[in-house]
Simulated assay, not measured.
Amino acid sequence: MHLVIGLGPIGGNIGARLAELGQGVYGYDFNQDRIREWSEENKSAAGSDLAAVDWPSIDSVHIAVRLADQVSSVLAALQAHTDKPLTVFVHTTLAPEDARRILPSAPGAWRAFEAPVSGGPHGARHGSMTVFLAGPAATPAEDKLLADIAGSVFRMASYGQPALVKLFNNALATYNLAATARMLNLAADHGVPARDLLEVVGVSTGQSWMSDNLSDVQYDLLLKDVGLLRGELGSLPTAKLDGDVEHAILRARSLLSPDSPNQ
């Protein structure tokens, strides 16, 4: 059985993917509405009390919370509830320095993997996401589990590298998103409907994953990752990724709305 801690967009969908594959899953979260909805949808047990977990049956633990302090709290709670050697995948995107601090602090009998992901909720739900992995050499069973939940797995040499690679990737994605949004805004300011320009971009050299998904991408998480990378490196090159980025994205989305007077 797999214990999924954090039933949000990533953790909840990883759990749903495993349940769909016929594997036993127990979902854990503090949000009672989320627990109920996830349990009903996936026909799997869920709760907010680790004491209710059937620990002898647990094969892996998947942690998908938002913050480094929450990861540390979860690891401490796991130690308080079981002395079983655990295989733990931390899917939370940590700052590289936090990954280097938190993951080595896991008990020596654990198999602790830093495993942030890319691909969003859709990738997590359909087993097509990318996993950036650091930790012990994976066993055949762990490789099979990773193949079940991910389309690609990139293995790194040490803790902190998965976070750094993901942050580089997401910073690049944010540059693309910010540039697309600003260009749509500029077009609208000069009399070209944003939707018309987006249609041109979609079949021309300006096309990117971000231009295709501008209306749906979780830009708040991307901006969070940009902040983590800036904290690690001290500064980022070229175009600014602060200030008016969120405003530009929201305005571009508004311009693309069917109800926009600019259409």
Rank of each mutant, 00 (worst) to 15 (best):
H2N: 14
G6Q: 11
L7Y: 08
L7S: 02
P9W: 08
G11M: 11
G22P: 08
V25P: 07
D29M: 13
Q32I: 09
R34H: 07
I35A: 11
W38Q: 00
W38D: 01
E41K: 15
N42V: 10
A52G: 05
I58G: 04
I63R: 01
A64N: 07
V65E: 12
R66N: 10
D69G: 04
D69S: 09
S72N: 08
A76P: 01
P85L: 01
T87S: 13
V88A: 01
V88W: 04
T93V: 06
P96F: 13
I102V: 14
S105L: 05
G108S: 14
W110F: 11
R111P: 03
F113T: 00
A115C: 15
G119A: 07
G119N: 10
G123M: 05
H126F: 14
M129W: 02
A134G: 04
P136I: 02
P136A: 12
A137T: 15
A137C: 07
A141Q: 15
A150D: 07
S152R: 14
V153P: 05
V153I: 11
F154Q: 12
M156G: 05
A157D: 15
Y159A: 02
L164I: 07
V165W: 00
V165T: 01
K166V: 09
K166G: 03
F168Q: 12
N170S: 06
L177S: 08
A178N: 01
A178Q: 02
A179P: 06
A181R: 04
M183F: 12
L186E: 03
G191W: 12
G191C: 09
P193I: 00
V200T: 10
V203M: 12
T205A: 15
Q207A: 15
S208Q: 01
M210L: 12
M210E: 09
D220Y: 07
D220Q: 14
D220W: 06
L222S: 05
V226T: 10
G234W: 13
S235L: 12
S235C: 11
P237T: 04
A239D: 13
K240R: 13
K240Q: 14
L241V: 12
D242T: 07
H247Y: 07
H247D: 14
I249N: 03
L250I: 08
L250E: 02
S254F: 06
L256Y: 09
S257E: 02
D259Y: 05
D259N: 09
S260V: 02
N262A: 14
N262S: 14
